[in-house]
Simulated assay, not measured.
Amino acid sequence: MEGLKLAAAKLVVYLHPSKAKNVADAIHGEISSLLFKFNETFDGVLLAYDTDFPSNLAKILPGVHPYFGVRLETKLLLFHPKPDMVLEGEVVRLSEQSIHVVILGFSAAAIMAEDIREEFKFKAKPGKEVFRSTIHKKHRIKIGTIIRFVVKSFDEEILHVSGSLLPAHTGCVKWLERHLEEWSQSDSTIKKRRANEQTGEISEPDKAANDGKTFAVNTESHNKKSKRRKSEN
């Protein structure tokens, strides 16, 4: 899924002297307070971090409040979806006018009716709302479905995504992946058949007769043998 990125950062965390006895816990507490919030410095929403710092990098800062700074290096996992990126999420609510999705368990997304391609038609029964494709009958979107959609915009303040199901490569992830595999196999078969035709190879379909072996026909050798027999006669 797009929208996720790893970043390496060098930070300085400022701590109150009262936390000097347990610097590691204090630092983890400061960084943890930034989780699941958009941070302009990191240019994304902090999802996870891995910090490594030596204890001898603490430095007392002069001033009225004698805070001390600790330099450290950390690896960050960030979430920052941008327009045209492809995201995946679980459908939590459906209506004729919209599809509502949760991404990674914390960010909400909404796909409005004008951003759902026309092949999907909404049908509702008590507790069984569904968007069903009129082209592929088994392509359905219902509550609990993991869908793939394209980002239109991202509200960094409330972590809300506006999405679209207009592109052909969007929809139910399970259906898309299954049919992508079928299309790939079909395309591979067609390419192999064309290659065999170009090289003059004939593949017999009767497995009982030849166990699926491929026979190469050498027309030049066959013609020479025919001429030799005629000359002998």
Rank of each mutant, 00 (worst) to 15 (best):
S95G: 09
S95Y: 01
S95F: 01
S95A: 08
E96A: 14
E96M: 02
Q97R: 08
S98L: 09
S98P: 12
I99E: 07
H100K: 10
H100Y: 07
V101S: 02
V101M: 05
V101D: 12
V101A: 01
V101P: 08
V102S: 11
I103Y: 06
I103P: 02
L104N: 11
L104G: 06
L104D: 12
G105S: 05
G105W: 01
G105R: 04
F106M: 08
S107I: 04
A108Q: 15
A108F: 15
A108W: 07
A109V: 07
A110K: 14
I111W: 02
I111A: 06
I111D: 00
I111Q: 03
I111K: 00
I111C: 04
I111F: 01
M112I: 13
A113C: 07
D115C: 10
I116P: 09
I116N: 02
I116D: 00
I116R: 00
R117M: 08
E118A: 00
E119G: 12
E119H: 15
E119W: 10
E119P: 11
F120K: 02
K121T: 09
F122G: 00
F122V: 08
F122E: 03
K123E: 06
K123I: 06
K123C: 05
A124V: 10
A124C: 04
A124H: 13
A124S: 13
K125N: 14
P126N: 15
P126V: 12
P126K: 14
G127Q: 01
G127C: 06
G127D: 00
G127H: 03
K128M: 06
K128C: 03
K128Y: 10
E129F: 03
E129T: 06
E129I: 06
E129V: 02
F131P: 00
R132E: 15
R132M: 08
R132K: 10
S133G: 05
I135K: 05
I135R: 01
I135T: 02
H136Q: 13
H136K: 09
H136N: 13
K137I: 15
K137C: 11
K137P: 07
K137V: 15
K137H: 14
K138E: 15
K138R: 15
K138D: 15
K138A: 13
H139N: 12
H139F: 09
R140C: 03
R140S: 03
R140M: 03
I141H: 01
I141Q: 06
K142V: 11
K142M: 13
K142N: 12
G144M: 13
G144N: 08
G144L: 15
T145K: 00
T145V: 00
T145N: 02
I146D: 11
I146E: 09
I146V: 11
I147M: 03
I147G: 12
I147P: 12
I147T: 07
R148W: 08
R148D: 02
R148H: 03
F149M: 00
F149R: 07
F149E: 02
F149D: 02
V150H: 00
V150S: 06
V150N: 04
K152H: 06
K152N: 06
K152M: 11
S153G: 14
F154E: 07
F154Y: 14
F154W: 09
D155E: 09
D155L: 07
D155M: 08
E156A: 13
E156W: 04
E156R: 14
E157R: 15
I158T: 13
L159A: 05
H160F: 13
H160R: 10
V161Q: 04
V161G: 10
S162M: 14
G163T: 14
